[in-house]
Design a protein around this nucleic acid. Sequence first.
DNA 1: TTGTCTTGTCGAAGCGCTTCGATTGAGGAT
DNA 2: ATCCTCAATCGAAGCGCTTCGACAAGACAA
Lengths: 328, 328
Amino acid sequence: MAGRGVTIADVAARAGVAASTVSYVLSGKRSISPETADRVMAAVADLGYHPHAGARSLASRRAGVVAMMFPIRDGMHLPVLMQFAAGAVAEARRHDQDVLLMTADEGPSGLARVAASAIVDGLILMDVEVRDPRVETLRRLGLPNVLIGFPADSEGLTCVDLDFTAAGRVCADYLAERGCGEIALLGAAEAVYERRTGFAERVREGFLSRPGLRGEVRPCPNYPTEVQRTVKELLSARPDLTGLAVHNEPAVGHVMHALADAGKRVGEDFHVVVIGPDEVAERVHPQLPSVLVPAETLAQTAVRHLMRKLDGHDVPDSTLIEPQLTLR
Amino acid sequence: MAGRGVTIADVAARAGVAASTVSYVLSGKRSISPETADRVMAAVADLGYHPHAGARSLASRRAGVVAMMFPIRDGMHLPVLMQFAAGAVAEARRHDQDVLLMTADEGPSGLARVAASAIVDGLILMDVEVRDPRVETLRRLGLPNVLIGFPADSEGLTCVDLDFTAAGRVCADYLAERGCGEIALLGAAEAVYERRTGFAERVREGFLSRPGLRGEVRPCPNYPTEVQRTVKELLSARPDLTGLAVHNEPAVGHVMHALADAGKRVGEDFHVVVIGPDEVAERVHPQLPSVLVPAETLAQTAVRHLMRKLDGHDVPDSTLIEPQLTLR
DNA sequence: TTGTCTTGTCGAAGCGCTTCGATTGAGGAT
DNA sequence: ATCCTCAATCGAAGCGCTTCGACAAGACAA
């Protein structure tokens, strides 16, 4: 049974050993005889002992907590963030760590606060932008960290992200296999491109890399009517277009409408593939194949890298996750 | 500038006072002369001092952290969770607290762990079910808490939720105002109803409460083809139906298709209202009015209640948040 | 004057843990 | 038998903070 305020001294008394011995059994930092260890573990279980997190952090200078800083901002797809969070928590727990949630609007001073108060051992920064004011602070603080995304100068930082070049290529490949000779990619709104040039360009590069295909990339706003207009313009400018990749979550539904209005039969004489979360691709008719941002894998990788850094190991500066195409 | 390992002793030395005086200035628990206080605050700012969270928690028995336990499970809409999280973090920071993220799969033993290790001062439990195994544990642990949702026996617990009865009523009202005499509510999949009977019944009750309307409620599966079938059955069984409320996020798009196929012109001779997040109602054509789950308000309320409990105040056992209809 | 409050400050104890030497006893080598 | 090593354990110090009781120094009443 869980008791109120069970301390290491209680465990030690019940097992008939010194408190330090209990500590060593639990941490494994010194060798302890199996008999003693058994007795200690039994006492721990009997009393429902869990070390006091504050005391531990004070004495060992390790909090057992990592922070995740989330963007709260337009353009990020919320479900993906949530999957990310879930994946990160799950992985962190596997390393016996907890996860503290921060939002980007705490900004650099929030980072300074958590670093100075030693409330966390490390940090995962999500949705890093090309010019991100937090990055400089992070460098200065020396708090172990992993970034999701790539800032302009990623020298010496640990960054993890989807391999967007590969994602673009996968889409082009899919369309080519369906027999499309002329293809286009409908991208995110201009604003997103401005903020994160890097990733937009990588998608373009991948999408256009397949030889023998006439491809193009054009940005696309989020609003229904403008989406419709963009699609119409595209279709009249490129009458032989038969393949379309859409990398803009909120637009997908409207794109499908515009195509239907234009008499295109998706899945038959016209093909569409989505870069985005499953939900978006599932909730239109017909359902579309999609390349998803593997949020869970990204989160796992980020947490693992951070753990290795906390343990003093080296990790690769840059890690790109392979995209996966889901057919429907 | 932030220094490495600035302690309260450093601040005290710089201000020429005792460490305890610094502590009292920061906490306001004893009166300190304005001059001394100013000197201390200046030293704090100069050195970039932030109290060591572990040390503070050890000495004061207050961690300054609250946990949020999230459901990671089908049927919960991810964006809503994310909004909830953001709202909770923002509100918690206003009270100088941090937020620890937990997932429901840690279950009751996770609760025991955080309680015993004193890593958090309190807990917010999301998406509580009618029969929720965590609730009993929570009662036993005595960790201050607030629940989102209502378990079967909410006696003595602090619960916060959307007023689902009112939400149902608001939908019926909207349809009535559009001149609908025969209306229906398409609900969630059976599974959800089984799990959370309480909330489903409250919506039904509200929806059917308006006199002079012929209403009915029927559950609806998530899968596209089955949604279509359900809608077709409904329309042929009730040829005079002109108003529909949809309380099933993934189904909305498919419902609209089915209605279009059946020749209904939504917004003209037929009216539809959604209970769910904005996104869902915005991404169909035409865009639909919706009653959203006010995630941010819920989160704020929950956090505030928890803070008051931590400060030893009383809070109402049960708080219902008013739904809001957004026209589009 | 002396005694009594009040106000502002200090010093020390202690929160529960980890960790660093020190200590003990057993086993091996000489 | 003696010395050395090594494994297993203990005791004490100390992590950085809060908080309690004590204590000067005025302010005020007697």
